[in-house]
Simulated scan of single mutants.
Amino acid sequence: MSRPTVVVTDALPPQVLAGLSAQFAVHRCDGADRPALLAAVAGADALIIRSATRVDREVLAAAPQLKIISRAGGRSRRCRCGGCRRSRHPGRHGTGRHRR
């Protein structure tokens, strides 16, 4: 059985990526590169973003199996969680616990 796929679009601390990789198939892409982002989310189960990635209806439409979007590091105006809920994608803001 294959592991769920998590797309990470922005820099995360190495220890966070290592922890994710232990449980998930992690695919990294540049969230500012729109074509790369749209291609990456096509097979993703989860999407982890930071401030450089903009999630909108186009991204959501390109991600038919996406189950959750998480904003690592705190709140962001780049991921409209209300819009995510209306379009069947739960959005979550990270706690920022990985910060020093």
Rank of each mutant, 00 (worst) to 15 (best):
R3E: 12
R3A: 14
P4V: 14
T5A: 06
V6L: 13
V6K: 03
V7R: 04
V8E: 03
V8W: 06
V8I: 13
T9N: 03
D10H: 02
A11M: 09
A11Y: 13
L12G: 05
P13H: 12
P13R: 12
P13D: 13
P13E: 12
P14Q: 13
P14K: 06
Q15E: 15
V16T: 12
L17E: 13
A18Q: 11
A18Y: 10
G19N: 07
G19T: 13
G19R: 14
G19V: 06
G19D: 14
G19L: 13
G19P: 07
L20M: 10
L20W: 04
L20P: 00
S21I: 09
S21P: 06
A22C: 02
F24M: 03
A25Q: 08
A25R: 08
A25S: 13
V26F: 05
V26P: 02
H27R: 06
R28D: 05
D30W: 02
G31V: 05
G31R: 01
A32Y: 00
D33W: 03
R34T: 09
R34E: 14
P35Y: 10
P35W: 10
L37G: 07
L38H: 09
L38Y: 09
L38C: 11
A39W: 03
A40H: 01
V41N: 02
V41G: 01
V41A: 04
A42G: 05
A44R: 08
A44C: 11
A46W: 11
A46Y: 15
L47P: 08
L47D: 01
L47A: 07
L47W: 08
L47R: 08
I48V: 15
I49R: 01
R50T: 09
A52F: 05
T53A: 12
V55R: 00
V55G: 06
